[in-house]
Each structure stands twice: as C-alpha cells, then as structure tokens.
C-alpha cells in the first residue's frame, strides 16, 4: 500500500465536531510511529512528510484536542 504524503502544516488540524461516519481512535490505539507523529505535531516539532501507515485521510485522533487527518 502506498503511503500518503502530507505537508506538515496540513497533516493534522484541530476540530470541534466529529462526523458520525468518521474513523475515530484514541492516541493509545495508534502505532508507536503514529504516536510520535502526533506528539511532534502537538509540540510544533518537525513532522515527517510521510503520514504513518495507520493514519489515513479523514481519521480523527483523540489527543488533548480532536485532530483531523487531512
């Protein structure tokens, strides 16, 4: 499966509402690489351009905010 390529500034964004059809996962359910990705994004650190394999477009990740994967 090919990996998505997501520029840093568009990879994740905070959202207030979640569509009922969204795939929603808590931070604890992510792979280690996806957790590192979220932590880096939340810390404004450099984020890899390649989205981790277990994150896909329109996913929502529950962290300290709800984060939508662009």
């Amino acid at each position: 499966m090919s990996q998505s390529v997501a520029p840093l500034e568009r990879s994740l964004s905070r959202v207030d509402r979640v569509h009922p059809s969204a795939r929603v996962r808590h931070f604890d359910q992510l792979s280690e690489s996806a957790q590192e990705y979220v932590i880096a994004w939340a810390s404004d650190d450099a984020v890899p351009n390649v989205l981790p394999e277990d994150l896909r477009a329109d996913d929502v990740v529950v962290f300290t905010d709800y984060l939508h994967v662009a």
Partner: peptide, 19 residues
C-alpha cells in the same frame, strides 16, 4: 466497541456511531 472512547461519548463530545 471502542472502550477507550466511551468516556468521550459520556463527555458529550463524540457521537455514538464511531464508538
């Protein structure tokens, strides 16, 4: 169902379907 997320449902932040 997603036992980790039921707290988000109870908070009123997440609809039932994604659970």
């Amino acid at each position: 169902y997603n036992r980790i997320l039921i707290k988000e449902f109870a908070k009123g932040k997440l609809p039932e379907a994604p659970i």
